[in-house]
């Protein structure tokens, strides 16, 4: 067989596996979250559809396909339709550079970390456009809040990435994982990890940073006016972002696929689900920030800490 054709075929199959696998994980993540919440609150959670509620995500998905799709008369139609598509597409994109195991990754781009930052930058457009195009006051306030929150915490996120790049000497995620062969990045980069984790919570709009969709004051925030499959895209996009962020934390700080005895892919999955569980655990433990506190934490605490982390890493690198 023609080698170029074979390469293209293999890449196509890999892309199908990654997108399919990711959608499966995201669908069952909704069930996992509901189950985790339920047990934290001493309830049982969904348990009617299938054994242990295992068919619940499928039932939810089918239901959303059958819902009436209302595009209100007062919206900016083009932006209104494009916004959920941007959110979902950009939530899936990080998986193109994440190494799932030693051999299995789609693309080893040598500016991987910059690509991640670019993707999260475009993601901001999705939610901001959703808020602006809806022409509803709740959506507008939610959209502007989410924009200022995302850009505030993106600075901290990018500065935490600088620490990683200084330590590993590369922006390619594959090389960053290989550089963690002896010791995971979480040990020398502990300050960076804390900054990154808090900033990641804010980027994902999760409690304690869920101001954009604070249901008690803003109904549903930027997706108040969305229905049917477009709403589902926002919902899925949120969980896809969560999965992507867990995968990034696993890759960058927790040694990716590295680990003894078990195959790399299993280690990657175990670490990713531990991070996911911690995200859910935090969501049902802490109350919400006030908006001025939220901006204050981002700029006055995380950015200086991240700069300190860069200085410490640069000095450490000279001696180690």
């Amino acid at each position: 067989m023609n080698p170029v054709f074979r390469d293209v075929l293999i890449t196509g199959v890999k892309i199908a596996i990654v997108i399919g696998g990711m959608l499966g994980v995201v669908a069952y993540l909704t069930l996992m979250e509901r189950k985790v919440v339920a047990y934290i609150q001493e309830r049982l959670g969904p348990n009617r559809v299938g054994p242990w509620g295992l068919l619940q995500p499928i039932a939810d998905g089918i239901k959303l396909f059958f819902k009436e799709d209302v595009i209100p008369a007062h919206v900016d139609k083009v932006l209104y339709v494009i916004a959920p598509m941007i959110v979902m597409t950009m939530a899936v994109m990080p998986f193109v550079i994440i190494p799932f195991s030693k051999r299995f990754y789609l693309s080893d781009i040598n500016v991987g970390i910059l690509l991640l930052l670019a993707i999260s930058g475009i993601n901001t457009y999705g939610v901001l456009l959703a808020g602006l195009s809806s022409n509803s006051k709740y959506s507008m306030i939610g959209g502007l809040r989410v924009a200022s929150q995302l850009i505030s915490y993106e600075v901290a996120l990018a500065l935490a990435f600088v620490g990683i790049v200084l330590w590993s000497g590369s922006m390619s995620l594959v090389k960053i994982v290989e550089a963690q062969h002896t010791i995971w990045n979480i040990v020398p980069q502990i300050i960076g990890f804390i900054v990154f984790f808090i900033a990641a919570l804010a980027e994902l709009n999760r409690i304690p940073f869920d101001l954009p969709e604070a249901e008690a004051e803003l109904v549903a925030g930027y997706h108040t006016e969305y229905s049917s499959m477009k709403f589902a895209l926002f919902y899925l996009g949120e969980y896809a972002n969560l999965t992507a962020m867990s995968a990034i934390i696993t890759t960058v700080y927790l040694g990716g696929w590295q680990g003894p005895w078990l195959p790399g892919f299993v280690w990657f999955a175990i670490k990713m689900f531990i991070v996911l569980f911690v995200f859910m655990w935090i969501r049902w433990t802490y109350p919400r920030f006030r908006f001025d506190q939220l901006i204050g934490v981002g700029w006055k605490l995380l950015v200086p800490l991240a700069l300190l982390n860069i200085a410490i890493t640069a000095i450490l690198r000279i001696y180690i």
Binding site: I15, I19, M85, M88, V92, M93, V96, L106, L115
Partner: peptide, 13 residues
């Protein structure tokens, strides 16, 4: 590859 992945993602949406 990255671009193709993006196109696939858009097509899925």
């Amino acid at each position: 590859t990255a671009l193709t992945f993006g196109v696939f993602a858009v097509l899925f949406v």
